[in-house]
């Protein structure tokens, strides 16, 4: 509210969305994600320096509400990149271009990544800390699904 900059909340949301769509969409790779993680951080800084939120703090103010959401999206977006970078395999909606079969199918790595990632928030400028929740299968054997 007190930033009183020049750019609308919507314009930041769109720019962040474009970065996420282009570089952390369904198909992603480590090189570009490393680069764009930095871009998200820079955009976030720009947001806190130059966003303009009209209206006042004490009235019904949908722009302020949206600004709070977009502020969260910066953190969530960056976390998605961190998580996608950590997982060196292709799995479900996470297709890492480096990990694919010759036919272009997703290549999983169950040896190293059969876990759910829970990330602990460590603060504004800190990297989050990974907690692994192992996936243990007792009665079935992990296989590759084939639609062919």
């Amino acid at each position: 509210m007190n930033v009183k900059g020049n750019q609308s909340v919507e314009s930041f949301h769109r720019r962040l969305g474009k970065i996420m769509w282009d570089y952390c969409g369904m198909s992603r790779n480590a090189d570009s994600m490393k680069k764009y993680r930095k871009m998200i951080q820079e955009l976030r800084e720009e947001f806190y320096k130059d966003v303009f939120i009209p209206g006042s703090m004490n009235d019904y103010n949908p722009e302020l509400e949206k600004a709070q959401r977009v502020a969260d999206f910066f953190e969530l977006g960056e976390l998605m990149v961190v998580d996608a970078l950590d997982r060196n395999e292709s799995c479900g909606g996470h297709f890492r271009e480096e990990y694919q079969s010759e036919e272009g199918e997703a290549l999983r790595n169950d040896e190293d990544y059969a876990y759910v990632s829970a990330w602990e928030y460590k603060g504004w400028d800190q990297d989050p800390v990974l907690h692994k929740e192992e996936l243990i299968f007792e009665n079935i054997e992990l296989k590759t699904r084939s639609y062919k």
Binding site: S8, E10, P54
Partner: peptide
């Protein structure tokens, strides 16, 4: 209406809720 609101915001006016 979104377009109108972006314009209003760019003029530092209050958008239409």
């Amino acid at each position: 209406l979104d377009v109108l609101n972006e314009e209003l915001i760019s003029k530092k006016e209050e958008p239409v809720t």
